[in-house]
Computed example of a mutant assay.
Amino acid sequence: MTPLLRIHHAAIICSDYARSKRFYTEVLGLKMLAENYRQARDSWKLDLALPDGGQVELFSFKGAPARPSYPEAQGLRHLAFAVNDVDAWQAHLASHGIAVETIRTDEYTGQRFVFFADPDGLPLELYEVPAQSTSPST
């Protein structure tokens, strides 16, 4: 059997498609790959590119229930993005009026990270990595 290569995508269901689309494209700067309205589901699906080839899929579903608790609900705890400068990203998010927690240091790796939330309260993390570590490994 061949090994898993990397995460291909993370799928997110949002409550307000237009608001979340602006957040992920304009604030986080993800590039749109495809946007499709699915008539049978009365739902939008937006495919967004991450620099390493991974993707974020953004869905809208009418009547989707809210997340039951934050952040300790079962399931996906948070989605983390690698960045080279946590301080710059923290300032960027704050300039867009986004509440950002205090920068922490990973007790095992010594790397710095910070948490914030998307428009629906989905916990997101920015994890600082050395510049050479941003490309996918082979």
Results as ranks from 00 to 15, higher is better:
residue 44 W to N: 15
residue 45 K to F: 09
residue 45 K to H: 13
residue 46 L to V: 07
residue 46 L to N: 05
residue 47 D to F: 13
residue 48 L to S: 04
residue 48 L to W: 07
residue 48 L to K: 04
residue 49 A to Y: 06
residue 49 A to G: 08
residue 49 A to M: 09
residue 49 A to N: 07
residue 49 A to H: 05
residue 50 L to N: 11
residue 50 L to R: 04
residue 50 L to D: 04
residue 50 L to F: 08
residue 51 P to T: 08
residue 51 P to Q: 13
residue 51 P to G: 10
residue 51 P to S: 14
residue 52 D to K: 02
residue 52 D to A: 06
residue 52 D to I: 03
residue 53 G to W: 03
residue 53 G to S: 03
residue 53 G to Q: 03
residue 54 G to A: 15
residue 55 Q to M: 15
residue 55 Q to N: 10
residue 55 Q to V: 07
residue 56 V to L: 12
residue 56 V to A: 01
residue 56 V to P: 00
residue 56 V to E: 00
residue 57 E to S: 06
residue 57 E to V: 08
residue 57 E to P: 03
residue 58 L to Q: 01
residue 58 L to C: 02
residue 58 L to D: 02
residue 58 L to V: 01
residue 59 F to W: 15
residue 59 F to H: 09
residue 59 F to V: 02
residue 60 S to F: 10
residue 60 S to T: 07
residue 60 S to E: 07
residue 60 S to K: 03
residue 61 F to H: 10
residue 61 F to L: 11
residue 62 K to N: 10
residue 63 G to L: 06
residue 63 G to T: 05
residue 63 G to D: 15
residue 63 G to F: 05
residue 63 G to K: 07
residue 63 G to V: 06
residue 63 G to A: 08
residue 64 A to D: 06
residue 64 A to R: 09
residue 64 A to S: 13
residue 64 A to K: 09
residue 65 P to D: 08
residue 65 P to R: 10
residue 65 P to E: 11
residue 65 P to K: 09
residue 65 P to S: 10
residue 66 A to E: 14
residue 66 A to W: 06
residue 66 A to T: 14
residue 68 P to V: 15
residue 68 P to R: 14
residue 68 P to N: 12
residue 69 S to Q: 14
residue 69 S to A: 15
residue 69 S to M: 14
residue 69 S to H: 09
residue 70 Y to C: 09
residue 71 P to T: 07
residue 71 P to L: 05
residue 72 E to L: 12
residue 72 E to S: 09
residue 73 A to I: 05
residue 73 A to F: 04
residue 73 A to P: 02
residue 73 A to E: 14
residue 73 A to Y: 07
residue 74 Q to R: 12
residue 74 Q to I: 14
residue 74 Q to V: 14
residue 76 L to E: 04
residue 76 L to M: 14
residue 76 L to D: 01
residue 76 L to V: 11
residue 77 R to D: 07
residue 78 H to R: 01
residue 78 H to M: 00
residue 79 L to I: 02
residue 79 L to E: 00
residue 79 L to A: 00
residue 81 F to L: 02
residue 81 F to Q: 01
residue 81 F to M: 00
residue 81 F to V: 01
residue 82 A to S: 13
residue 82 A to L: 12
residue 83 V to N: 01
residue 83 V to T: 06
residue 84 N to I: 13
residue 84 N to S: 13
residue 85 D to A: 06
residue 85 D to V: 01
residue 85 D to G: 02
residue 86 V to Q: 02
residue 87 D to I: 02
residue 88 A to I: 03
residue 88 A to S: 13
residue 88 A to P: 04
residue 88 A to Q: 09
residue 88 A to R: 11
residue 88 A to F: 06
residue 88 A to V: 05
residue 89 W to I: 08
residue 89 W to Q: 09
residue 90 Q to W: 03
residue 90 Q to F: 01
residue 90 Q to M: 05
residue 90 Q to E: 11
residue 91 A to R: 14
residue 91 A to T: 13
residue 91 A to C: 05
residue 92 H to A: 10
residue 92 H to R: 15
residue 92 H to S: 10
residue 92 H to L: 11
residue 92 H to C: 08
